[in-house]
Amino acid sequence: IRLYEREDYRGQMIEFTEDCSCLQDRFRFNEIHSLNVLEGSWVLYELSNYRGRQYLLMPGDYRRYQDWGATNARVGSLRRV
């Protein structure tokens, strides 16, 4: 999964292949505005340590956080399923 700091895949990008319990420890931002799921399925959590609202993401492109059903861009952790 590739996470981007801004909409439309702009700004700083980070790629994950494994679970991350605290996004801010690995990426200086806690807001993700766009992403690409390259393979497999992922769950994004609004808070760190896999807490808060959850969003199940299938392979595909998500140009804005609204595309995955979120009401804001906050992402605290993520897990591959």
Rank of each mutant, 00 (worst) to 15 (best):
I1L: 05
R2T: 05
Y4Q: 00
Y4N: 11
E7S: 13
D8S: 08
Y9G: 12
Y9H: 15
G11P: 01
G11D: 13
I14S: 14
E15D: 03
F16S: 11
F16K: 04
F16A: 05
T17I: 13
T17Q: 05
E18W: 04
E18Y: 05
E18P: 01
E18R: 12
D19Y: 03
D19V: 05
D19K: 04
D19M: 06
C20W: 12
C20D: 14
S21Q: 02
S21W: 05
S21H: 05
C22K: 04
C22P: 05
L23V: 07
Q24L: 09
D25V: 07
R26V: 09
R26S: 12
R26I: 02
F27I: 07
F27Q: 10
F29S: 14
F29L: 09
F29R: 14
F29A: 10
N30K: 14
N30Y: 05
N30R: 11
N30W: 07
N30H: 06
I32T: 07
I32M: 11
I32F: 09
H33S: 14
S34G: 05
S34I: 00
L35N: 03
L35H: 01
L35M: 07
N36A: 12
L38I: 10
L38F: 06
L38H: 11
L38R: 11
E39L: 06
E39F: 02
E39T: 12
G40R: 04
S41G: 13
S41F: 01
W42C: 02
W42S: 00
V43C: 15
V43P: 00
V43D: 09
L44C: 05
Y45P: 01
E46D: 07
E46H: 03
L47R: 12
L47V: 04
N49K: 05
Y50H: 07
Y50Q: 03
Y50D: 01
R51S: 07
R51D: 08
R53W: 02
R53E: 07
R53L: 04
Q54I: 02
Q54D: 10
Y55A: 11
Y55C: 06
Y55S: 14
L56S: 15
L57Y: 04
L57V: 12
M58P: 15
M58F: 06
M58Y: 15
P59G: 13
P59E: 09
G60T: 04
G60P: 01
G60I: 04
D61Q: 07
D61W: 02
D61K: 05
Y62M: 14
Y62H: 06
Y62D: 00
Y62E: 01
Y62A: 15
Y62Q: 02
R64V: 07
Y65H: 14
Y65V: 07
Q66D: 04
Q66H: 14
Q66I: 14
D67N: 15
D67V: 07
D67R: 03
D67Q: 06
D67M: 12
W68V: 13
G69Q: 13
A70F: 12
T71C: 10
T71W: 10
N72R: 11
N72V: 13
N72E: 11
R74S: 09
R74Q: 08
V75H: 01
V75K: 01
S77G: 02
S77P: 00
L78F: 15
L78T: 03
R79A: 14
R79N: 02
R79I: 03
R79D: 01
